[in-house]
Amino acid sequence: MPHPGLLLAGFALVVAITLLLAWPRRGLVARARRLRRVTARVRVEDTLKYLFHRAAEGRDVHPDALAGALQVRQSLAAELLEQLTQRGLVEPHGDDGHRLTDGGRREALRIVRAHRILEQYLADRTGIGPEEWHALAEEEEHHVSPDELEALAERLGQPRFDPHGDPIPTATGELPIPDGAPLTALDIGEAGVITHLEDEPADAFDRLVAMGFALGRTVIVRERGPQGAIVELDGRARTVSRACERAVSVRRGAEEPAAPARTLADLAPGTSGRVRRLSSACRGAQRRRLLDLGVVPGTQVVAELASASGDPVAYRIRGALIALRRHQAEWIEIEEAA
């Protein structure tokens, strides 16, 4: 029988190689698979999407901008635009720019629909966090078949908006225009209700999510400077950079909340409060469960019992004693009883 030391060394080698190959998403096998899926069709679809998004901003597209967005050589970008022009999906416009034709716009809407439905699926039906929705949807949108997509849309109840607040184009290609102004448009002291959080650039989005920005929350601009602004988000002060500010769209004319929002987590045992809202950060199966249990605006909730470890806490909701974890209690905004 071989020497134990030798066997151990062999074992360590096998483990190292397995990890290198099979690590989820970053292992060699996963990377190779991803690389193989980036076909010509995928590039074409990404180009159409890019043109669509720039058109929404009223801008034409040049090959160098496209090359930067898709992370490819400029010559390849020019080739792609040429291809699409020949197929009648793109036409020249302005000085040296390109834009989508009607046919191109229809194609682009199809892909955008796939992207946003996938994001909604990830947000609503899985436990995957907000930071990953966009990247995962970016990949899968090219590989989901029309049948699969429709089945998914049906399962989700034909959602109208994706988790960022973007409207989802219908199967027949209609897309309502979202209303809302960027946060930068709010005056000092003006309040707005968040209707949309832009998912690109990704680091701005991640930072916003980490600070607690979510659809439906009220934000008030307190101070503004060249680098960004200081805002009040549900009573808590937050510093946001310019890039972050641009990524947030709000509906103007919101009422300033009377007092900073308190959540269920702030209730001391023995005290009660009335539910005001369930934060939109609570989503999917979790949200439905809380609604089913009676956590709806107007419900009286009493914090009755803390567990031996302090978390979860049991609340009396609609006659039943329900234990909720602290992070769940923080989603439930309340008005405390006098």
Binding site: G127, R289, L321
Partner: peptide, 17 residues
């Protein structure tokens, strides 16, 4: 953290009388 990362999750615990 790995295989079950994407599964839906929702916590609730009822304490019956």
């Amino acid at each position: 953290r790995t295989v079950l990362r994407g599964e839906a999750t929702s916590f609730s615990l009822e304490l019956p009388p």
